[in-house]
Write a protein that binds this DNA or RNA. Structure first.
Lengths: 265, 265
DNA sequence: CGACACCTTGAAGAGGTTCAAGAAATGTGG
DNA sequence: CCACATTTCTTGAACCTCTTCAAGGTGTCG
């Protein structure tokens, strides 16, 4: 039913900002040179305003690409850290586990985002990165990143910003987990997802969830039943239409109100 | 009653690893040269194994020191980002706020730790850093850090590790907030605090909390009453002695069991 | 087409919150 | 140095949100 290049949402929609990789070209991915310079995700994962020579050098950072089948792991807790990964296509979750086996989804990552930062501090990964759909990543050996970012200032700055952004994102998740109620959490989650998808050229109002209710629940600190019930509640209230993993947001403003309850004066 | 240099815990205890700054020397802090090379926290905030010339250069990164009175802010959400701060003495909390005024403590920081990383991504801070006791920090202008870390590889590596460590720490907090129950959260919190204090030469079993029940609760995603009740429960069970902010851990193993419940086979 | 994974919904129950009151500590000003 | 105001902490009781347990429905994939 769906054609093969239907990444991220599965909803056909004319991309606005950035075209899905190879969409409609019929090119086999391996036919494309492994290079950032002709990657249309460049503006998401690379610094802007580079000179041609700098771009050429950064091309060398991407050592190779790697495909990960749905359900497979890009890296696992305990594995030696060697590289950061820029997601080209597909959708990932990262999760940490406590000793007694509970685990917690710490994030969902999509095209243009970087995973693997957790591994730097102790030269080994502290979480699992699992593909939620068939995916492809650019492998960027970290020692080469460090080497090059000593020479290309904007790359250095960019790396620092990427790490800082992840710290700030996690601060936001802590706020969510520490102080929001179930409806607020799910509303914030949907708004965040749809905003990121929109930045990649997809619809502002429609999305296909690539993760299960249980994974959403883990991320939001809720049980899967609560996630399901909250979706149903939103649907009853006419805020969203939900059919399994297909979600259509009918009233974005209502979701925003839920996240930030207005005080009545 | 307490003498003035009673940092961090207020419990007099012979420091093991690293001496509290100026403890018992009677020196006015400003009398000490602003330099990492003769700072006894160096091993906490600076990379190891530097040559003398490298150490001399890193000394230059620390532009100045700054004192912050208890209750005052080191930086605030929205303020322009210029510098990272290495804590010399005192104790901080960082907190983010949602638009509607709720706020969430995202961390507690003590001597040797770095604050301000949140500001890098957008050149402005996204959280507040508040001193919970009179404090002093080393001000490290970020552009100078970037400049120098292009030339001193171990400093570059160190910066990356510091940011990665913060990401991993926050992953741990997400696990705590997303999947642990009140007792588990408080036990994990106490173990973490006492472990960090111990690394700074303080007791493994005794500590003075520098924050209120409300601040602990905010950090742990609980209400202050729940924190109080849980402390009382631990005390009843003979796991800790609690007298206001003075805590003595009687059974570390019991706290560990609470954090990681053993499955009975 | 059948097996399996995933999702929805109901009912009962638990853990944590809210509201309230009082006690203990801390800080302030006379 | 003491009295008083303020902040912080503790504890109880009622309540509420979310979880747990259970059953059945829906969708997907080999």
């Amino acid at each position: 039913m769906n054609h093969s290049n239907d990444t991220l949402t599965g909803i056909s929609h004319p991309p606005i900002a950035i075209q899905p990789i190879n969409a409609g070209t019929g090119l086999h991915p391996n036919a494309i040179k492994v290079a950032c310079s002709n990657c249309n995700l460049r503006e998401l994962c690379m610094p802007l305003g580079l000179s041609q020579t700098e771009i050429d050098r950064i091309d060398d950072v991407v050592a190779s690409r790697r495909k990960i089948k749905r359900g497979a792991t890009l890296f696992r807790n305990g594995e030696k850290f060697t590289s950061l990964y820029a997601i080209r296509t597909g959708f990932f979750k990262t999760c940490v586990a406590s000793e007694d086996g509970r685990d917690q989804v710490t994030g969902f990552q999509m095209a243009g985002e970087i995973v693997g930062l957790d591994g730097i501090v102790n030269d080994q990964h502290t979480c699992d990165a699992v593909a939620l759909e068939d995916a492809e990543v650019c492998v960027m050996p970290f020692d080469r990143i460090e080497e090059l970012s000593r020479e290309v200032n904007s790359l250095q700055r960019h790396m620092h910003k990427i790490m800082s952004r992840e710290i700030v994102r996690e601060n936001g998740v802590m706020l969510l987990l520490g102080s929001m109620r179930a409806e607020e959490r799910l509303a914030a989650f949907l708004l965040n997802l749809v905003q990121r998808l929109h930045a990649r050229g997809f619809s502002q109002s429609e999305l296909v969830l690539r993760m299960t209710r249980e994974e959403i629940g883990s991320y939001l600190g809720l049980k899967l039943e609560t996630v399901s019930r909250t979706f149903s509640k939103f649907a009853e209230d006419g805020i969203v239409e939900v059919k399994q993993r297909h979600v259509r947001i009918l009233r974005t403003d209502a979701l925003k109100d839920i996240v930030n309850p207005q005080v009545c004066n």
